[in-house]
């Protein structure tokens, strides 16, 4: 397999469950060796996409290629090269955590036992406990260790750290960075924005089963708004008429507004022409970036699809 084919190439994917449209023309490209953030509100189709990529669901239409293969037909050969961590890990009540780690690793076709023991220690997991007696966080650890100690090229992680404590979250991030150094590709669905910011090279944001943004975080930031607070030398004229300026508040000589990052130049030129006494410019936080995408959805009054 040559390394130029993307690890994941999905175009125009559709999947409906009865009348619920879970995926509605989704596109997703993950290049080799990158950590790709997969973001979207609850029920936007992230899990459905991952389950199509795992060959658990058959897409209604569209194409999906995984490591150059077809996820529906090449199941065994592809699954030998990937590992999956579900967001809600459900373990077998009568198997111990250690047994599950070994079992899943061996079924994938190989387990790096040194990495396994190392991760068990770093994640502070008691591998002798039975499935029922683990807390949610510990169940996640079992699945994470099983995935990360498998010898695979691609990791599909569906909200893997839900329920982990901050210390374990840090351990997880370190481990993923080690995997990246090994050249592994990671698709990381997550709601923990700090994790996304710390790990991801590129992100895709999906909504209602469609991809709405893809790019590096810097590129995405560029698409959003910067907030400006300034104290001016004269009256704040001309700002209100500028395109791409939003939520303008004028209070005497003080102004506060948000501006599309692409139009930042124009706004600053306008301010300097009036005369600037002080200026605070805040780049959009990741939160704002996502909230903008997420709330736009709510405003449209949609969001019926459920996470499945």
């Amino acid at each position: 397999m040559d390394d130029t084919t993307p690890a994941i190439a999905v175009t125009g994917l559709h999947k409906s469950f009865g009348r619920t449209r879970a995926l509605d023309g989704l596109d997703l490209t993950v290049t080799r060796g990158e950590i790709h953030g997969f973001l979207g509100p609850n029920g936007s189709g992230k899990t459905t996409t991952i389950r199509v990529l795992l060959g658990l669901l058959k897409a209604d239409s569209g194409t999906a290629r995984l490591l150059g293969g077809d996820p529906w037909t090449d199941v065994a050969s592809l699954h030998r090269r990937l590992a999956y961590v579900p967001g809600d890990v459900n373990l077998w009540p009568n198997l111990s955590g250690g047994e599950v780690i070994d079992l899943l690793g061996r079924l994938r076709g190989g387990l790096d036992t040194r990495r396994r023991d190392d991760l068990v220690e770093r994640f502070d997991l008691d591998p002798r406990k039975k499935g029922r007696t683990y807390s949610k966080g510990n169940r996640q650890k079992v699945a994470i260790i099983a995935a990360l100690s498998s010898r695979v090229d691609l990791l599909l992680l569906d909200e893997p750290t839900a329920g982990l404590d901050p210390l374990m979250e840090a351990t997880f991030q370190t481990a993923i960075q080690e995997d990246r150094a090994q050249g592994r590709t990671v698709l990381l669905s997550s709601h923990i924005l700090a994790e996304v910011e710390a790990l991801c090279d590129r992100v895709s944001i999906i909504r209602n089963g469609k991809t709405v943004e893809t790019g590096t975080l810097a590129e995405l930031r560029h698409l959003t708004r910067t907030s400006i607070t300034a104290e001016l030398a004269g009256p704040a004229d001309g700002l209100a008429t500028l395109a791409n300026v939003h939520d303008l508040e004028i209070e005497g000589s003080k102004v506060r507004f948000d501006v599309e990052t692409a139009a930042l130049d124009d706004a600053l030129r306008q301010l300097t022409s009036i005369g600037v006494r002080s200026l605070v410019s805040q780049p959009p936080t990741l939160e704002e970036l996502f909230l903008r995408h997420y709330t736009e959805e709510t405003a449209r009054g949609n969001g019926k699809a459920t996470t499945s």
């Binding site: 065994a76 579900p86 890990v89 899943l104």
Partner: peptide, 14 residues
């Protein structure tokens, strides 16, 4: 219960 996903995401075929 969702346990089969974990197993079928390995090289084990259906």
């Amino acid at each position: 219960a969702g346990r089969v996903e974990a197993v079928l995401s390995t090289a084990l075929t259906r």
